[in-house]
Design a protein around this nucleic acid. Structure first.
Lengths: 331, 331
DNA sequence: CTGTTAGCGCCTTCAC
DNA sequence: GTGAAGGCGCTAACAG
């Protein structure tokens, strides 16, 4: 007579019985084989195969207080900018046995606060957020939860815990300085409407010393929005000489639209993007942009988190990865 | 004297004591408020605020056998193609209280098998994979684990459980038919080296009736690889008339390279992509491509999974979302 | 509407 | 090297 009830999933208990050892011995054979005899290990392993046992990490984690998960909060997964970071995070964490739990904040503080709550309730061993956490409620809750946190893609003197990023004010300022150094005076900005892009714009303006025509586009930015942005900017100043775009996608759109209008890049219009996306170096003309090593940010953040999980102190809780302007054909 | 020990995290027990009710009443007040009196709920909620309680989903899940997580396996997060699907998944699942656990298979079957194992050990309430699961070991394990599974971005008569996708053979065949209908006979292919791209190529070739010059590029494909692919194809056949590319990124590269060489699109060279990326409609010329509704795939997959989680039967376990060729300026 | 009892599956602590 | 208790934090199941 076969088992007609629900196929109760096989537990370590079943493995132990099959192997003729106690529960705890089976447990040790699998998770701490150093302290168990070879023979026992072999028997347990055979029992695992016979029974088709797959451990339950949730149960183990309850006792050991390690979920082997890391929560990652991004504004929007479809924003290509963060993909190298997410990829690096996934790779490094996976190699250490950790999996990523993904959440989207939608560039919305209330949403971020709620999401952080549900993430904490999953007891991740670490939390990585893109951008800084501004809500005081969230900052307090994270501190109280005692979960290691890395804020990324931005910098602050006062991180919740750790931070890996760069200064957006300096980026904006550097681009403005670069434009001014080229002798361009009629400038424009095509920018997303998120927090960090806004800070870059402020840095740009403060270096320029006055306001400049700006086209704002909603996130996530795209080639299509870039074309539209150029139309707006040309309407505001038909003699515009150089445009800073808050993403390479926008810059690509600006260039496509400019070329469609018969403008020569960079003679008639110079364009600088942000992010150094994979296509930036291979466009015609190649795109001048700001290189930020997103993969490096991800790798560092993951390593800092893992160090913390191992109980090691992190030497440098705030890391500035910097950035650099990569000058190419579009300027 | 303040507590000098580790700040033992506050549990439901503390909330119950603070509220002056039993543990289970506190539990119900939070997770099943319908069966508890208003007054009690208010007291418990006040106690939650006073204590700063954040529930432990891991513990609850152990008993209730619901982790409120869904595992998503993609070949590579950096492949833009799947982003709309992942985004839709995240959105729909999040609205239902589920979070996504992300894993990358790297287009590698052994890796996929291992990853599925670690995912199962996290006891997700559902698993979504891009592509079909070919390994028999994995198929058996998934079935035995009794976890709902949706295979996406492809179709099969024999899914592990459920499937949402379309036929890649038909896509390849449709593009070939489209090219032939235009009168083009000197054809070429620029394609990624993954399984599904290979199947599209086979569909293309079988409709054409003979082999055609092909440039293979490693995943993930990119604009740069597209430029390189065109160089290869022109070397193989300088008189090539039309090229099918396995992604819009590749197609964009082919077009950029063609334009850099002074070829006119589509008069000298016609190009068709795959995926209808956000930029495809806005290039110059706009890109003819195959539209696949990745967001729809994600939404459907999430809903099917959620239905299953609610114990409802899914009416149609295999859904063909189809595709269509969007004809634009590049052909 | 509220409480008591008994675990979920595993691992930590202590004994042998 | 192995084993027997006990409990992680919470929730089904049954009482009252």
């Amino acid at each position: 007579m076969t088992d007609s009830t629900a196929p109760k999933s096989v537990t370590l208990h079943d493995v132990a019985r099959e192997a003729g050892v106690s529960l705890i011995t089976a447990s040790r054979a699998l998770s701490n084989p150093g302290v168990v005899s070879e023979k026992t290990i072999a028997r347990v392993q055979r029992a695992v195969e016979v029974t088709g046992y797959i451990p339950n990490l949730l149960a183990g984690g309850l006792k050991s207080r390690r979920s082997l998960t890391v929560a990652a909060l991004v504004p929007n997964i479809a924003v290509a900018q963060f993909l190298p970071t997410i990829k690096a995070l996934t790779d490094v964490l996976d190699a250490a046995g950790y999996q990523l739990i993904l959440g989207q904040t939608g560039y919305d503080h209330a949403r971020e606060e709620a999401l952080l709550g549900t993430m904490i309730s999953r007891r991740p061993d670490g939390i990585i957020v893109t951008g800084l956490i501004h809500s005081q409620v969230s900052r307090d809750r994270l501190r109280r939860a005692g979960i290691p946190v890395v804020e990324t893609w931005d910098l602050t003197d006062r991180p919740v815990d750790m931070a890996v990023g760069f200064s957006h004010v300096k980026v904006g300022s550097a681009i403005a300085g670069f434009f001014l150094g080229k002798g361009w005076r009629r400038l424009g900005i095509a920018t997303g409407d998120d927090q960090r892009a806004a800070v870059r714009r402020e840095g740009f303006l403060s270096t320029v010393g006055h306001d400049v025509p700006t086209a704002f586009v909603p996130a996530p930015s795209s080639l299509a929005l870039g074309r539209q942005a150029l139309s707006e900017l040309l309407a505001k100043d038909p003699g515009i000489e150089a445009i800073y775009c808050s993403s390479d996608q926008l810059a690509q759109g600006v260039i496509v639209e400019a070329q469609a209008r018969g403008l020569r890049i960079p003679q008639d219009l110079a364009v600088c993007g942000f992010g150094d996306a994979d296509f930036a170096a291979h466009m015609e003309p190649a795109l001048t942009t700001v290189q930020v090593d997103g993969a490096h940010i991800g790798k560092l953040a993951a390593r800092m988190l893992l160090d913390r999980c191992r109980g090691e102190a992190v030497a440098q809780p705030v890391v500035d990865v910097g950035f650099r302007i990569v000058e190419r054909g579009s300027t």
